[in-house]
């Protein structure tokens, strides 16, 4: 399995979305928090559930892609 993960900065927002190689995703507005979560794989990485919100997102920003 590839050990690649990505962090996208959602256009028009301050939100970063992380996608782990296992398929789990999460969002945050702080890169350190998001990298902590991605680096902790598989802890907290549940691909069957909804996206993990590592911090409350601003109003109007979707929590899932």
């Amino acid at each position: 399995m590839s050990a690649t993960f990505t962090v996208d900065w959602l256009p028009g927002s301050d939100v970063l979305r992380g996608r782990c190689h296992c398929g789990a995703t999460s969002s945050a507005q702080d890169p350190a928090t998001l990298l902590d979560w991605l680096g902790a794989h598989p802890d907290g990485h549940d691909t069957s559930g909804p996206e993990v919100l590592l911090a409350p997102l601003p109003a109007g920003v979707a929590g899932d892609a």
Binding site: S2, F5, T6, V7
Partner: peptide, 10 residues
């Protein structure tokens, strides 16, 4: 302009 970051740990 927003960035995309990709990390290949392997």
């Amino acid at each position: 302009t927003p960035i995309t970051t990709e990390v290949d740990e392997e």
